[in-house]
């Protein structure tokens, strides 16, 4: 169980504009610094936030990074909120305790 590590990755992504850019442009390179399971790494690398949510990523941290990437890419907030809601809604409220 390493979902605490997912939360640490999410925290590190969101530190600066440079760290967000680095994750957005080279997610594989960014993730090399962390001990993650294959599934966790794949979900992070492909930015499959629905799967990350289902795995128990901290919802607040997850949405914070979703928002930051949307701001970087110029995606309107109502649009990203709808996409996020759609991605997580099949998964209910997973346990996010680390």
């Amino acid at each position: 169980m390493s979902r605490g590590m997912i939360d640490i990755v999410l925290y590190d992504i969101d530190q600066t504009i440079a760290s967000i850019d680095r994750f957005a442009t080279d997610p594989g390179g960014f993730l090399d610094a962390y001990r993650l399971t294959e599934d966790e790494r794949r979900a992070l690398e492909t930015w499959d936030y629905g799967s990350l949510y289902a795995m128990g990523a901290h919802p607040f941290l997850l949405f914070q990074v979703v928002r930051s990437l949307a701001v970087r890419d110029g995606v309107a907030m109502p649009q990203i909120i709808e996409q996020y809601r759609e991605a997580i809604s099949p998964h209910g409220a997973p346990d996010y305790i680390t």
Binding site: P59, L61, F63, R85, G92
Partner: peptide
């Protein structure tokens, strides 16, 4: 609720 099913 932020990041959960009832956000915004």
């Amino acid at each position: 609720d932020l990041g959960g099913p009832n956000l915004f």
